[in-house]
Every structure is written in C-alpha cells, then in structure tokens.
C-alpha cells in the first residue's frame, strides 16, 4: 500500500483541485480496487466540496484537556497565574479566570494549586468523519474553532485512512495536505511514500516551496514537483525548474492556467469529469493533470 501526499507550502496553489482530479483518475486506473482519500487539511478542509461525500461515521476528537477553575475551592492565592507561561490565567480582584483559548493544556496549574481547585476537563476539539464518495472512501475532519492540536487530528485521519486501506486491500491512499511547514504538515508528511509539491510561478510560491522542500528532506521523503498555472510567469517557472535541477528533484508536471479550471472551481466540480468514458473533450489543464497522474503512478511503481 502506498501513500501519496499532495502539499504546497503556500496556500491556494491548487492542491485540492489536483487531489479532486486524482480521485477520478485513480478510479479509472484501479477500477476493481478501492483508493482511499484523506483530507489532512483539518483546519480548513475543502476536499469534500469537490468529492461530495455522504458521511457514514462521525467521531469525536479530543484534544488536550483544558484547565477549569472551581471558584468554590479557589482561595485566590494566584499560584496558578504565576506558573502559567501561556498567559491563560488572569487574576481579577474577586476571582481568577482561565482563558480557554490561551490554555495549552499543560496542566502545570492543576499540579501546583494548593487547594485542588483546578480540574483538567476533556474538550471536544473537533470531529473526524468516514464518508462514501463515488470515488471511494474519504476520511476528513473538522477542527473546532480556535482549537489546537491539528497535528494530532491529522494523525487520527491518517490512521483511519490506513486502517480502511488495509481492510480493503487498497493500493493507494491519496492525502490532501495542509499549507505551511508547521505541526499539521509535519504530521501529514511522516512516513508517506511520495510527496507531490504543487507550486505556482510566483515569488511567494517559490519561497514557500523551498522551505517545504527543506522540511521534506529532513523527513527523508521522496519529493516531486509540479507547477500549476506555469504559464502565468515563464521566467519564474524556469527558476523553479532550475531549483529542481540543482536539488535533484524531479519535475513531474506542468499545468497551464485554464479558464475551464476556474469554471470548475466556481461550481465546486472536479476538473476531470467523474464520468471518464463520456468522451467529452478535455481542457488543457485536465490533459496536463492526466499526464501528471501517469507520472505519479510511475514513481509509486503502481
């Protein structure tokens, strides 16, 4: 079983669009097998908007327990506020208050309180879902508003995706990754077989790709690069090619800017029609994505 991660560093370069297209292409490539899809962007999950799942199972996600204070037991000594390094505890004249958004759940206040007035309470920090789509099962999640621990929720999503893939004898899991290089990205990246970096020919796209590549290198994950909207700026596209060449990264695809993609996005539809046998002529971007897919399968020896 192989795990493919689609990732970008910078947001909005086209990760989800490409994963949405891959879902259809995977069904076409492995008609008798199940490909599992996983949305690891748990902060702002969007893959479901293209894949239109029906949710089969909803699970609660518990983050770290958070501190709450029992005013009946509290004698206002202020020891908790002194030890809290996250500015989550404020002394007021009459009482002590814990700000749940700032609490990181370290529990130091709980351990230090001389009156046992602090309790650590379970908090539902989000939900994760197992859903059916016409392309195969989708594992996705929604982190609660202003919550932490997106990395831990990403791990839950990936664990479930792997479990389903093993049960169904799948060859492939396709993961839509989060933006950035921080905790959810690190959780998405560890142990994948191939990371496809989707970049765009903008100076921000290049800057972010370089940082992401450094991260992936530290994880010893094989990286390939694809330029989306490559014709937006030919010079920067050449710079990306040059970066890949000097770092020995394979450039596996170039997708042109295409009005058809914009139209599909506005409608929330995949750029490759789910009905691949319809014989409808495809847009330049869809064609390029098809070639990219063939190259990815090649890399994964599938």
């Amino acid at each position: 079983m192989k795990e493919l991660l689609v990732i970008s560093g910078k947001g909005g370069t086209g990760k989800t669009t490409i994963v949405g297209a891959f879902a259809g292409l995977a069904k076409d490539s492995f008609p008798c097998e199940t490909t599992v899809l996983a949305d690891c962007d748990v902060d702002a999950a969007d893959l479901h908007l293209i894949l239109k799942p029906s949710v089969r199972r909803t699970n609660e996600f518990f983050g770290l327990k958070k501190a709450t204070i029992d005013p009946a037991k509290c004698d206002n000594c202020g020891e908790c506020a002194k030890v809290c390094r996250f500015d989550a505890i404020a002394m007021h004249e009459e009482s002590i208050k814990i700000e749940p958004v700032s609490c990181e759940g370290c529990a130091v206040c709980f351990h230090i309180c001389p009156s046992q007035a602090i309790n650590m309470k379970d908090v539902i920090a989000g939900h994760w879902f197992v859903s059916d789509t016409i392309y195969g099962p989708l594992v996705h999640a929604k982190l609660g508003v202003a919550e932490e621990n997106s990395g831990k929720l990403v791990m839950e999503v990936r664990r479930e995706a792997r479990r389903i893939a093993e049960t169904r004898g799948s060859r492939l899991i396709i993961c839509d990754g989060p933006p950035g290089v921080g905790c959810p990205v690190i959780s998405s990246m560890s142990g994948v077989d191939l990371a496809l970096i989707v970049t765009e020919p903008t100076i921000a796209g290049v800057h972010d790709m370089e940082r992401l590549y450094t991260l992936a290198n530290g994880f010893d994950v094989e990286v390939v690069v694809c330029i989306n909207k490559y014709d937006l700026d030919y010079k920067i596209s050449r710079d990306i090619r040059e970066f890949c060449r000097t770092h020995d990264i394979d450039m596996v695809g170039r997708i042109p800017f295409d009005e058809e993609v914009v139209k599909a996005l506005v409608k929330g539809e995949p750029i490759i029609s789910p009905d691949l046998t319809s014989g409808k002529s495809e847009s330049p971007a869809a064609n390029a994505t098809r070639q990219l897919w063939a190259e990815i399968l090649n890399r994964l020896s599938l």
């Binding site: 902060d43 702002a44 982190l143 202003a146 919550e147 997106s150 996005l265 506005v266 409608k267």
Partner: peptide, 26 residues
Amino acid sequence: PGTSCPVVASVSGSDFCLLVTEPTPF
C-alpha cells in the same frame, strides 16, 4: 491561513479583522 492556534495567536487582540475570501465554494 486556517483557523487554529497560529491564527488565533495572530488575530487575538486586534481592533479589527479583515477576512479575505474569493467567490468560490472553497
């Protein structure tokens, strides 16, 4: 981007927040 802890750390304490979006379902 996002809505989790790094965003909260950035936005909290602001007098005003501008949410930039685009007219797509995403």
